[in-house]
Design a protein around this nucleic acid. Sequence first.
DNA 1: TAGCGGTATGCTGTAGGCAGTCGACTAAAT
DNA 2: ATTTAGTCGACTGCCTACAGCATACCGCTA
Lengths: 247, 247
Amino acid sequence: MLLSDQAGQAAATKIPRPATLRESVIEAIQELIVSGQLKPGQHLVESELAQLLGVSRQPVREALQQLNGEGWVDLHPGQGAFVHVPTVEEADQLLAVRALLETESARLAAQHAGEDGVRRLRVLCARGIAAVESDDVESAVATNSELHALVTALSGNSVLAELASQVARRVRWYHTPVARQRGMASWQEHTALIDAIEAGDEHRAAHIMREHTEHTRASYMEQRENEPVEPAPKPVRRRRPRTPSTN
Amino acid sequence: MLLSDQAGQAAATKIPRPATLRESVIEAIQELIVSGQLKPGQHLVESELAQLLGVSRQPVREALQQLNGEGWVDLHPGQGAFVHVPTVEEADQLLAVRALLETESARLAAQHAGEDGVRRLRVLCARGIAAVESDDVESAVATNSELHALVTALSGNSVLAELASQVARRVRWYHTPVARQRGMASWQEHTALIDAIEAGDEHRAAHIMREHTEHTRASYMEQRENEPVEPAPKPVRRRRPRTPSTN
DNA sequence: TAGCGGTATGCTGTAGGCAGTCGACTAAAT
DNA sequence: ATTTAGTCGACTGCCTACAGCATACCGCTA
């Protein structure tokens, strides 16, 4: 047996990724955004981020451009990068698209998922329920993402899966603070979904997934009602004051 | 009246955009790919492209990364960029996703499109039919894209529209050589679609759009049958031979 | 006093350069 | 003859430097 063969089987991801600097910067900035250290609408100065992360401007630039492509930051030519300001309409649209993609994924998964796939789904589901029961919100959210990602993967349509994954990542930005609300109900729906997939009932799987994502959407909109968002801090701005004291 | 007011009304796009170099490079490389000057699987050397386009490596790098995000090239860390090799499965999956997105767009468009939207659709449709009748394939394909883009725009869901546009651009890469086949039939379906949208019949609009995209898909697969693709030239390679004659 | 043009400043966009790394080719040993 | 170690070459990844530009500040003028 050739070494390459067994490597191909065993290690889906060959190495722990020494990771190019660019990727590390991307993740770092994403983390800064979701954690709220970088606020929506804020002007991201390349040199500042570079110094903050201890790298040169180049990786930062490239990271910002990729993040622009994924909808995390807006790139105004000649002015720089700004953290994307999520509007309510956009969140609603994003959730609608997610519902569409995931519903189709569930339908296809019901057609194509094998025994092994279902087994892995059940493992994730059990882990998620355990996380909820022990009030570990962060782990629950992560497992939720994993489960949805696995469903899309089991659809057999990798293009669909990648698109869904991209949308899901953006949704997660809004979704995280709301996750606690839904809690257990969400995982009961997951269980029902897996049952439908195992039975190969594509119609039921699609229906459950649609209901499920709609529940999440409703939950989000409800949350948004109570917390009506800051009015509109500043769509664009640039260059910080020379002497902060004088202002 | 302030100058900015009338400017805001008149010029939606303020300036003809001298465009940043990066964007120009992106379009140039896309053009090189669709025109076949850069073949699938080919190793794209940054310095060569830079010299070819008369710019520095930096804009080329950034362009390659964005193109990677859009699925045009594959970026192997430490090895460089390669033109993406489109497989049959992937094309099928892409067309399936497009069908999904555009069907939903048509459904929403039937709900939200106003008189003005329908009027613009009819204009495009007329232009497309004229193009087909005068055998102007290129113009027909372009108009086709415009019409589909307008339908997604009329859906009122900009996230959906952007996603669909991205997928459509990639589809167009495969689709262009096939476009001649479908010809007139495609535009008759367009007309029916617009009728449904005008009537506000979301179910019928969705149905027609699904049929329409499925026809395109079938047409593509059929075409692909006759021309079974080169086997698999070279998944990865690097560094061109010192003496090209020996090969 | 209010509007307007001039000037200064810092940021982005682009270019060039250097070191690390990966692949291919060559030579030696089994 | 096939495998294995060594060397060379080239390309990528990253850093630094420079030019252009957009904004903010400030003095001038009406």
